[in-house]
Design a binder for these strands. Structure first.
Lengths: 235, 235
DNA sequence: GAGTGGTCTAGACCACGCA
DNA sequence: GCGTGGTCTAGACCACTCT
């Protein structure tokens, strides 16, 4: 049986509470000692849970004061997007699947190095076009290794976060990664999708995301129209 | 007196050893228990030091095996750069200061929010043009708050990392930050510096970097020619 | 089986913020 | 002065890797 460590359990609880609004933005989390008492844990364990929340940007700690709740900007996967005009809420975000998940071989010249197990298993491939405020903002293609993902290709991903699906159905979480970023002239086919002119500057990202499953990486290539919206990131 | 915590001391030692080649890439660090004995610490303290190294990408841990030493790509400040042709070593990196550090007021429409203490202290401003392989790759302007930085404006920064200077002379370390990234058409004056055509796509970054000094943030704006080199990042 | 890192307990003292 | 988070000790048991 796969039992979750205590600090992860507490992390999940607090994360859910913060995101669902149990704690107001700017308010204080219960103190570390209170959390110890509430959940029957010791301080190092509680602190381990809080550390992950700090890493997520969900809380900021201040010595002598407490843990301040923050609500990081609306995030799409690991990308965060800032609108030029208004804040972005869930309702303004839309996902259209251009290519439903299919099983394929990995391309010959795949831009990242693959482990043997990944290469042998083949890839699940999908393409998406994502809208903010009703306008197309970026187009991405994604590869994930076809390892132990029952029924994945038949799941509906329309208007759902790929990462949220992996998280809730398969207990797969992104815990790091690497990426290359370039500014390029938009090729014609992508420009048509993004409703911009061929040759307009777009952000081009290649990213490899590592997960809590050893050797299970997710690969994305993204064309992003940064004229209307901005990529926002923490590090 | 500002005495450094034990785990930071150990972190600094190990970091120096890894970077200076005492440990080979791919080899194992001494085990956690060995490090305990060597430095007279307990495991949680040693683990805290190792955690920072993991965060830096300098080691990767494997349960049942050990801590594997890695050498992350050549990094310029927090940016990492990959050449299109060859690997980049120190000797291929050159910095030219276009505007030596001067003390200024903050601009009216500064793109990031400033704390009161930062705004009151004024800014140290500098501009740099940075070369890789003898070619200009990016141009940056930097603002740092004029707080407790004796003799900073008279220091030579040519061919030295700004961050390394802050680290070694003032014990200031970057520990996080946020940034906005866009692809834009290069304006004429910047294009001249980067030796590209006006209107060519360039990466445009606005970044705010937090440090171990509470309320001391470094602000950079960067124009990056991503045609010849790529920005590489871990997260 | 021996050694590794992963998790956890039950305390302790300190520096900092706030009233 | 009190409560907060920051650091640290001295153990313990477990899961995993390697041989």
């Amino acid at each position: 049986m796969n039992t979750m460590p205590q600090y992860r359990k507490l992390y999940e609880i607090l994360r859910r509470h913060i995101l669902s609004g149990v704690y107001e933005e700017g308010s204080l989390l219960p103190s570390e000692n209170e959390l110890c008492a509430l959940h029957g844990l010791t301080r190092p364990t509680v602190r381990q849970a809080l550390e992950s929340l700090v890493k997520d940007g969900l809380i900021a700690k201040r010595q002598g004061k407490g843990s301040i709740v923050r609500k990081p900007p609306q995030s799409i996967g690991i990308l965060s997007i800032e609108g030029t005009a208004s804040a972005i809420g869930d309702k303004y975000l839309k996902t259209v699947i251009l290519q439903k998940p299919v099983i394929r071989k990995w391309e010959e010249n795949f831009p990242f190095e693959l482990s043997e197990i990944e290469r042998e298993s083949g890839a699940i491939y999908l393409e998406r076009l994502r809208y903010v405020d009703g306008k197309p903002v970026f187009y991405d293609i994604n590869h994930l290794p076809n390892i132990n993902l029952p029924r994945f290709t038949s799941r509906s991903l329309e208007n759902r976060s790929l990462f949220e699906t992996l998280r809730s159905h398969y207990q797969i979480r992104i815990n790091g990664g690497e990426q290359r970023i370039q500014a390029i002239r938009c090729p014609e086919d992508i420009a048509a999708l993004l409703k911009i002119k061929k040759g307009d500057p777009v952000l081009y990202l290649q990213r490899k995301m590592a997960t809590n499953r050893e050797g299970f990486n997710i690969y994305s290539v993204i064309w992003f129209n940064s004229a209307s919206h901005t990529i926002f990131g923490r590090f």
